[in-house]
Design a protein around this nucleic acid. Structure first.
Length: 556
DNA sequence: ATGCATCGCGCG
DNA sequence: AAAGCGCGCGATGCAT
């Protein structure tokens, strides 16, 4: 059963549909204040909740202690169906752009002015978006797809992700401010007053000034710093750390240390703590489907860049543990499954990179890693490029897959992940340049620019199929895990083992200590299940590493 | 004062 | 010219 929720100026309307999408009975009005209790009651029938945007409905339910098992997030699903090559012939994909094509979450849009809605006419159909009609269109699009199971699984996983994102934010990542401050003090010195530099940075700056013989260089200004370095005799074109590392000069060591610590201070220092950590929890916004490839985005506090330096401040509550798990070498394994490359699947029986060494393609594990990254990102030069021929000989099917995706992108075409997320077409400017360069007598410069742009888009589509399918695996992993964690405990959401962090191929579960071992089992079971769901019977393993720890810094 | 591009660097 | 993908964010410096 489905229950479609619609919110209008009159309140909430609920409409039940059977599994075939046929309406069951009359729409039911529910007062906003009664909604959590009402949803909680109906949830016992295990419906799939259908709503425009999970961020508009679920946070309030969670705050009221109501957890739902599953939903259809119409906005996220629409985004996928609109672009997918699997549903390109559908009415949905061929309709003109409408309110469902707005890229921003509905919750972020300014609320409609009340005056406009004072007319007392048909509120449900006057709503800017009609979830009932949209849901019907979406079901039709899925049913008409060549392989409805693929796109259907993607929509279910994406919608589960939408619930998970709300839950992770509601639960928050446990961060101990006192521990974080201790780490900062250790590395930077005492907290400075006002906008002064911390003691350790001031000290390094003095040393740099003495070595360079200047007293007024601002190291935080790349332009100024570059001038000062050149005056000091360093032959550098930029102030990037990797470039400085190549230079032999006494100022380099203190400068690199300054940069490292300065970065910590500005990105995750005391100010970060004051701004983003409250009541012992870090609660950024997670944005499912926030990137072209289907990976999540995040905003607020740099959630997806939490540096290793401060992970020790992520501490489990007393009596609880953190279970940190990540999928080992996820992307290359996804590539071997996508391409059904048996040789690569065989190499991935254990450590994939060691397996590639054993296959004889390359000599060392480090080379294997660089070669695989090069294949997935489209390296043409450097070590990655150099190792490509050997990799191609050893794993022709896998390499053919990414090369094919690259060629498609270079022509301006679209590629699609395993479950059906399609890459966006290049923009108008891209096509104009390609067309301009293809006419008789186009200048060499124009042709070169067009080729560079074409290759660049090819690298994007090459990576898209791998990164995007890996994101699908991760979503299925988490969706399965979420149900398993719920079954492990009792009580409300945050009393049971629950997800508190997600980073592309890595999760953190916060769990009562006595359930930590069971959580590890469920993590593994969910990983195997995700592989089977997406790739069926292919002999590709998706091993995960796990660590049961008191703080995140102890993992890895 | 505010917006925007650039640099640089953190994460996967 | 970090070879090669996807992000978010803060400081700077210039434009408005």
């Amino acid at each position: 059963m489905y229950v479609v929720l619609t919110r209008s100026n009159r309140g909430v309307t609920a409409l039940r549909l059977d599994d075939a999408g046929s309406v069951l009975g009359e729409p039911e009005g529910v007062a906003e204040t009664e909604l959590p209790a009402w949803v909680g009651r109906v949830e016992r029938e295990r419906p799939r909740w259908v709503w425009d945007d999970s961020t508009r409905w679920y946070p309030a339910l969670l705050a009221a202690g109501v957890r739902v098992e599953r939903c259809v997030d119409l906005r996220l699903s629409h985004q996928i169906l609109r672009a997918s090559t699997l549903t390109a012939a559908s009415a949905l994909a061929n309709a003109p752009l409408g309110p469902w094509d707005n890229a921003t979450p509905l919750a972020e849009k300014a609320p409609a002015s009340g005056a406009l809605f004072d007319f007392d006419v048909e509120p449900a159909t006057d709503a800017p978006t009609d979830p009932v009609a949209e849901f019907a269109l979406q079901r039709e699009a899925v049913a008409g797809a060549a392989e409805p199971g693929r796109i259907g699984l993607l929509l279910a996983a994406e919608s589960a992700g939408a619930l998970i994102a709300c839950e992770i934010k509601a639960a928050g990542l446990p961060v101990r401010a006192d521990v974080h401050e201790g780490l900062l003090a250790e590395l930077l010195g005492d907290r400075p007053r006002g906008s002064e530099r911390p003691a350790r940075l001031e000290e390094l700056l003095e040393r740099m000034r003495a070595i360079l013989g200047t007293h007024d260089v601002n190291p935080d200004s790349p332009a100024e710093l570059l001038k000062a370095l050149r005056r000091g005799g360093l032959q550098v074109a930029s102030t990037r750390s990797w470039e400085l590392k190549e230079v032999n000069h006494p100022v380099v060591a203190p400068l690199l240390e300054y940069k490292k610590l300065s970065r910590l201070q500005t990105a995750n220092g005391w100010n970060w703590l004051d701004t983003w950590v409250a009541d012992g929890r870090f609660r950024p916004d997670y944005v499912p489907g926030g990137t072209a490839t289907g990976r999540w985005g995040a905003s607020g506090g740099g959630a997806l860049q939490l540096p290793k330096q401060v992970r020790g401040a992520v501490v489990a509550d007393p009596g609880w543990k953190l279970v940190v798990a990540d999928a080992a070498q996820l992307e290359p394994r996804v590539l071997s499954a996508l391409s059904a490359d048996r040789a690569m699947a065989e190499a991935g029986r254990g450590d994939l990179y060691e397996g590639i060494v054993a296959s004889g393609a390359v000599k060392t594990r480090a080379e294997a890693k660089v070669a695989m990254l090069g294949a997935m990102y489209g390296a043409t030069a450097g070590d990655g490029g150099r190792l490509m021929p050997a990799l191609t000989r050893a794993f022709p099917q896998a390499i053919a897959m990414v090369e094919g995706a690259a060629r498609t992108g270079e022509r301006g075409g679209t590629v699609t992940t395993r479950l059906g997320r399609s890459s966006p077409p290049p923009g108008e400017a891209w096509r104009e340049l390609q067309e301009g360069a293809s006419v008789q007598g186009a200048s060499d410069a124009l042709q070169r620019a067009a080729r560079t742009q074409s290759r660049s888009w090819g690298r994007f589509t090459r990576n898209f199929i791998v990164q995007g399918t890996a994101a699908e695996w991760a979503l299925c992993w988490m969706a399965g895990l979420r149900g398993r964690l719920w079954s492990l405990g009792t009580g409300q959401f945050a009393d049971r083992p629950h997800l508190v962090f997600f980073l592309h191929d890595e999760v953190i579960v916060h769990t009562p200590a006595e359930l930590a071992d069971s959580v590890v089992d469920e993590l593994r079971a969910a990983a195997s299940e995700a592989g089977r769901l997406i790739f069926g019977g292919l002999p590709v393993d998706f091993p995960i590493t796990t660590a049961v720890v008191d703080n995140y810094g102890q993992a890895k």
